[in-house]
Design a protein around this nucleic acid. Sequence first.
DNA 1: ATGAAAGCGCTAACAC
DNA 2: GTGTTAGCGCTTTCAT
Lengths: 335, 335
Amino acid sequence: MTATIKDIAKAVGVNPSTVSRVINGTASISEETKEKIMQAMKELDYHPNSLARSLVNGNTFTIGLVIDAGNKDAFSNAFFIQSVIAIESVAQSKGYSVLITNHSLSDSNNIKNLVQERKVDGIILPVQCMTGELIDLMTSSNFPFVVMGEPQDKRADICWVDVDNEQGSRQAVECLIKSGYKSPMLLVENRKTIFENKRIKGFEDECKAQKIKTCSIHTFSEEKIEKLIDEIQKKERETDSVICSNNVIAFKVLKAIKARKICVPKQIGVITFDNYPLAEYMEPALSVVDVDTYKMGETAAELLFRSIRGKEKKIKGRLVDVAIIERESTERKTK
Amino acid sequence: MTATIKDIAKAVGVNPSTVSRVINGTASISEETKEKIMQAMKELDYHPNSLARSLVNGNTFTIGLVIDAGNKDAFSNAFFIQSVIAIESVAQSKGYSVLITNHSLSDSNNIKNLVQERKVDGIILPVQCMTGELIDLMTSSNFPFVVMGEPQDKRADICWVDVDNEQGSRQAVECLIKSGYKSPMLLVENRKTIFENKRIKGFEDECKAQKIKTCSIHTFSEEKIEKLIDEIQKKERETDSVICSNNVIAFKVLKAIKARKICVPKQIGVITFDNYPLAEYMEPALSVVDVDTYKMGETAAELLFRSIRGKEKKIKGRLVDVAIIERESTERKTK
DNA sequence: ATGAAAGCGCTAACAC
DNA sequence: GTGTTAGCGCTTTCAT
């Protein structure tokens, strides 16, 4: 039997509401009774029941976080955990808990339940989980939410956070040029997702010769990558460096390049998006466009709390800066 | 304004309790009124308030999951996410939500709050978060919890799940022997943690010559690893294969070996614990002891739910099987 | 089969 | 400064 507010009221000989007041600091209480109440709370090991509290206050001090487990890409998951940690950290600092729920492609009911059953005060969700139905539900009920990743659907009042992919490409090109490369090529996985398109845009902005190849790691076999490398090698003057849109592409490319005894970084420079923990252990150590997923989660959480607090209604999108980490794979110039 | 149980009662012209009964199927209701009530629930878009429900039922249909973000080891985090996904999945199948909270070394208050403020019905926590104080709190209040990782402190009623590390070492040795290697060496990070000791034990059980080296990736510089490899190389007859206790060791070892133009797998076989997503992209592709973190999370969740349901009180520990995945790095025999 | 009423633990509006 | 009262939304005896 855990102590309730009544128990401690009885113990001290006051009314439950008085106890409530000292707990919440919601009215001025005489030092004396306050002392006694504090004392009793300690002795009876009292802890307020968050449920009861939420029920009357109408808020749960909990935010929902949707994770996309269906996304079997172990790589993106590995990144996402950083966002999770950041979100939890911000939430904790505000006295909030974080409820996670999986996004299942079949139905978004679990997410809908979160908002409809009043289990959370707001939600952070990855862009791929953002169905129209869900958006309707949340916007119509004025329910606070923040999207991780830039949505295609640019409705007025959707608040989102993303990595600055355009900037990423631009900086990658700059990094290569600065290192003495003349003609980079961009290798993307596809041209469908918005983030790939941003990367393409940034690349095109910065690079006169717009050499871009699509090489999905799923449909694209190793042989195809190898052919691509052969191609690059033949016209070496044309392409002397590659920017890979993700780590798997980078690893396959690296493998194919090395199998041909082409030297990285001397003959071909390689830089990749995403600072996967292993990138620095590769040979050569991979230069990367470091995507700060912690920062992204942190920003998302902060935006969500602003929305929950009701301040600054009209925040639309927010981009998180990327940073280049130069390692061996782009060291053409001998220092 | 969201509809409450009263609203729908009023709409149909019945008592709130009747509505409650159809929601919970807790009494026999005439088909007619049941129909009407269901209808009204749809029309008014009614969703039961989980808070109110929990308050009266005394359970939250939520479990707590402690994550160890302080653990800056990006590698272990990458694995842990699989457990998180598994736990969420099991929870969801039972109609439960998952509340995550970070473990901060400074104080375990946030975890304690979870149980004391009745926010969750049970908790899953990593072994490193398991302070004596916390255990006391949970056992004394008969609060269900499951530990991920085998605890040092073997109290009677602590329920834990771990990977079968002993089996892992044994199978790694077997795999090497089967592939034609004669004399493996085990490289562990330290001899302090229980899981390293289990790996050592399994290795010793299986291997007459008990060659074990400690090489913390933090205190152990690349040069030291290189020296180690030099040593191995000199007495090649003695050591012809290494089992690495984690991926970082494996990558550094691989690098050092290759720098010396020693051929893997011909001259030295390499196998490592943990099937990090990149292991298969290494050169040569790394054979691994695959630790099924999904399964581990799943098992933990299942045990927790048994405990919550009050069945099978006395479950102590449970080991999850490992599996060897043979890739190029142990292919001594040409097939 | 259904209604009435009490109560889960807490807070807040209104008294004094 | 503190007691009284009502009520958050739901479930659950106890009636009928």
